[in-house]
């Protein structure tokens, strides 16, 4: 009887000691995953995910508060990287990849106000005050920040048209195969 009580109590105390030490020893300060994910995100802080910047987005993904499909500029490529990193399966088919888009300045309406290139996260718009601005297609990620601030609505976001180089076969559709 007494032995049982003593054994169990001692065992409890010993375990408490071990666990207490272990808890102190192996304390994890900050989640390194957040940093890794932030490194994957575009980093342009464009705000298309609805959050104030890529660092916050990364935190939201780790906390499970945002889906890994949150980043439109990243596209499917980013979703795949995130899925790999977080070891989750994601149904890519449901992901209507927003076709990549570019900003285009309609020159007849541009008044050269410079607002757009001040907000551009990638410095893709060039121009000077009172000059018509234009967009460097290679640097534009189609985030649309410029269109929001343009006072004359002369910035348009156009989807990129496929070319022979970028065209790819659509996924075959057939009633039988898409039944699941």
């Amino acid at each position: 009887m007494i032995e049982a009580i003593i054994t169990l109590t001692t065992l409890g105390m010993l375990l408490g000691l071990l666990l207490g030490i272990a808890a102190k020893r192996f304390k994890v300060e900050k989640d390194p995953l957040v940093e890794e994910i932030e490194a994957l995100l575009p980093g342009s802080n464009c705000g298309q995910c609805g959050l104030a910047g890529c660092a916050i987005g990364a935190q939201a993904i780790v906390d499970g508060k945002a889906p890994i499909t949150l980043c439109p500029p990243g596209g499917k490529a980013l979703v795949r990287q995130l899925a790999d990193k977080l070891k989750v399966d994601v149904d890519m088919s449901s992901l209507a990849d927003k076709p990549p888009a570019f900003a285009r300045v309609r020159e007849e309406h541009c008044i050269g106000c410079t607002r757009c290139f001040k907000v551009c996260p990638t410095d893709a718009i060039i121009g000077a005050p009172k000059q018509i601005h234009s967009v460097l297609l290679n640097a534009c990620n189609g985030c649309g920040s410029c269109a929001e601030v343009c006072p004359t609505s002369c910035v348009e976001i156009d989807p990129v048209k496929p070319t022979l180089g970028t065209w790819c076969w659509p996924k075959p559709v057939s009633a039988e195969h898409s039944s699941r």
Binding site: P42, G43, S44, N45, P73, G74, G75, K76, A77, L78, R80, Q81, P100, C120, P121, T122, D123, A124, N138, A139, N141, T166
Partner: peptide, 18 residues
Amino acid sequence: QKLQAKRNEEIKKLAQQR
């Protein structure tokens, strides 16, 4: 996707430069 990832990388560099 590969092209897009490459592009993302480039744009990220631009963003950092900015």
